[in-house]
Design a protein around this nucleic acid. Structure first.
Lengths: 188, 188
DNA sequence: AGCATATCTTGCCACTGCCAAGATGACGGA
DNA sequence: TCCGTCATCTTGGCAGTGGCAAGATATGCT
């Protein structure tokens, strides 16, 4: 037997933090956040069972980092969508479907530390991006706060129901198209 | 020492199944579904650690029963709200806030068995009740399917965001009032 | 009364999260 | 170049958990 030098990359991993976050995304995608196991992530990354603790402290720390990363990604997506409310809403849904693991952890306060500084910063940035997209609604209403909340609710609800598999098959296979149709209901 | 006959009710519990479900609701309310422990529920109910298995098989079985109970309760609430879309929506939000443990499990397919017969039956009944409330919308639209999905999305999204603590303080302390305002946005 | 069955208990194993202690490698200063 | 310091990772251990098997106890039916 040759020593397994080429595959193990003994000790220093390179970027174990990144690898663990990626493994977490994959594992959550397979079985949901509740079934997540730090030891399983360690095995996927090829490190010992206690290695994750060094980077994230504990399980909650890892999920907090994942949530923060999620809000940063969401903020990027919303910025990219620009000022159009419809497109911002579609981008919100697209993000939820494309990054379901992030999305689920982001809105599960029991799974992460809601007052973590990095998380707060990312969440604030995403909130600003969201408000930016909603601000320039086609018909300026008398109650912009209410309108913003309605817009957020409808896209968040659609995304959540889609991810939960709660929607009937008649909605069709394309979440973006269905979301676009639903969001348009806000304008008539 | 007197024998602890009065308190222990040795062996047969009376209605352990009910007691475990109630304990689960309380435990989930305290720390979320991910932190739920069957052994903890057994302790709360004053029985041995393996007692729950007899009634629910495994942890997923217990959560499946909880989800089914939740859909039945939701169907009751929606039926009570009648045909008014606005009131049905408010009832949906009220249910989510009042039965947050049920609600979280109901829409977390990773936590329960989605094809459980009792669950499917309860979910179907709740779906019918929901469609009933949405059917008689004030201004009959050309796309009732789309309108129903929009209504469900907006109330579900608002409820989810409220439960996640994601909404800003400016929304106010009363979820029903805020929901009423948001839902009205659908009618203009 | 007696037996079948539902209900609950005890004991066990594999797994998990977390902690403590030690080993290993990377990096910068003499 | 060598050495010390520090971040990174490993090994080992403990308590808690889910699930299984086997046994104990109560209930209800005949």
């Amino acid at each position: 037997m040759l020593p397994t030098v080429t595959t193990t990359r003994a000790y220093h991993h390179g970027d174990l933090r990144r690898a663990l976050l990626d493994a977490a995304v994959q594992a959550i995608g397979e079985a949901g956040p509740a079934a997540l196991s730090l030891r399983d992530l360690a095995r996927r990354a090829g490190v010992s069972h206690a290695a994750p603790a060094h980077h994230f402290g504990d399980k909650t720390g890892l999920l907090t980092a994942l949530a923060a990363e999620g809000f940063a990604l969401l903020a990027d997506e919303l910025d990219r969508a620009g000022d159009d409310l419809l497109e911002a809403g579609v981008a919100y849904v697209r993000f939820a479907v494309a990054h379901r693991a992030h999305f689920e952890v982001m809105f599960s306060p029991d799974l992460h530390r809601v007052d973590d500084p990095a998380l707060v910063a990312a969440r604030t940035r995403a909130g600003a991006a969201l408000r930016g997209g909603v601000a320039t609604v086609a018909t300026p209403s008398a109650e912009p706060e209410r309108d913003a909340l309605a817009a957020w609710s409808i896209v968040h609800g659609f995304a959540t129901l889609w991810l939960a598999g709660a929607l009937p098959a008649s909605v069709g296979p394309d979440p973006e198209a269905a979301a676009r149709s639903v969001i348009r209901r806000l304008f008539w």
